[in-house]
Simulated assay, not measured.
Amino acid sequence: MTPLALAPPATEPVTLTEARQFLRLDQGDEDELLSTLLTASRLMIEAAAGRCLIEQRWRIVLDRWPAKGEIRMPLSPIARIEAARVYDMLGAAQTVAEAALTLDRSADPPLIRLTGEVPEIGRDHGAIEIDVVAGYGATAAAVPAPLRQAVLRLAARWFEERGDVASRDARALPGAIAALVAPFRRGRL
């Protein structure tokens, strides 16, 4: 299973204005840098939490349908399935009926269950594509406050302590930020 990012979020969970207020910046001289740090912080928090924060489009590529009829999604949370298709022997895309796939959002990780007839696959690799929208919602208000705070604090840390801080943080999040993310991490056995 391969997840492919199709479209990044239209917005960040923390606005440039919020970050400037948090940092007590009156001038907009470094807005470009701060915007870049907000995006990098979101990506780092998403990786640490194992969650997509703001709605973003992804494509899940599979070689074959799972034997048990359940696809454990590598992304969380999943808002909806947008489309699904299977490539036949001639390489033509066959649309999968909407009723054939059911999204179980309550499972963690989310599951897509086969609940109807699906087309036969026609090639060995990359035969199935499922387009999904992952994230808590389309706006920052939908993102849990601790995750928004983690993005803000990490961007502020990188802004205030420029230099090699980013390389240290790449190995492990600072304790206070990791504590904000911890309740959202998916447990592993």
Rank of each mutant, 00 (worst) to 15 (best):
G122Q: 02
E12H: 14
A140H: 02
G116C: 08
W58D: 00
A7M: 14
L6A: 08
P174M: 07
L90F: 07
A99P: 02
D31S: 13
A142K: 02
D26V: 11
A179G: 13
W158Y: 06
A100I: 00
R80M: 12
A7K: 14
S106F: 15
L4H: 15
L43H: 14
A40S: 11
G122T: 01
R186M: 09
G116S: 09
A40E: 08
P3K: 10
A47V: 07
G50D: 02
E32F: 12
R85C: 03
L154D: 02
D169W: 03
L173F: 03
I130L: 04
R186K: 11
R123C: 10
A176I: 02
P146L: 07
L152S: 01
S41M: 05
Q149N: 05
A107V: 04
T39F: 12
P110Y: 07
A92W: 06
L6M: 13
R72L: 08
R80V: 09
R162L: 05
T15G: 12
A182S: 13
R153T: 01
W158R: 04
F159S: 06
R85L: 04
I121N: 03
T95P: 04
T17E: 14
D164N: 10
P8D: 07
E46T: 04
Y87F: 11
D108R: 15
A99V: 05
E161I: 11
F184R: 07
A182L: 14
A47W: 12
L103K: 08
Q149E: 09
L34G: 01
A5H: 15
I54F: 14
G116K: 06
A140C: 04
S35T: 14
L37E: 02
L62P: 01
E30G: 03
R168G: 07
R80G: 05
L38K: 00
A10F: 10
I128P: 00
E160D: 11
L154P: 03
I130K: 02
A93L: 05
A156F: 13
T95I: 11
A182N: 10
E82N: 15
V14G: 00
R153C: 03
P174R: 06
G69F: 11
R186N: 05
A156R: 05
V133Y: 00
A100R: 03
L152F: 13
T102W: 10
L16M: 12
A166T: 12
G122D: 03
P183M: 06
T39M: 08
V143I: 07
R185K: 15
R185W: 10
I112H: 00
Q56P: 05
T115I: 01
E82A: 15
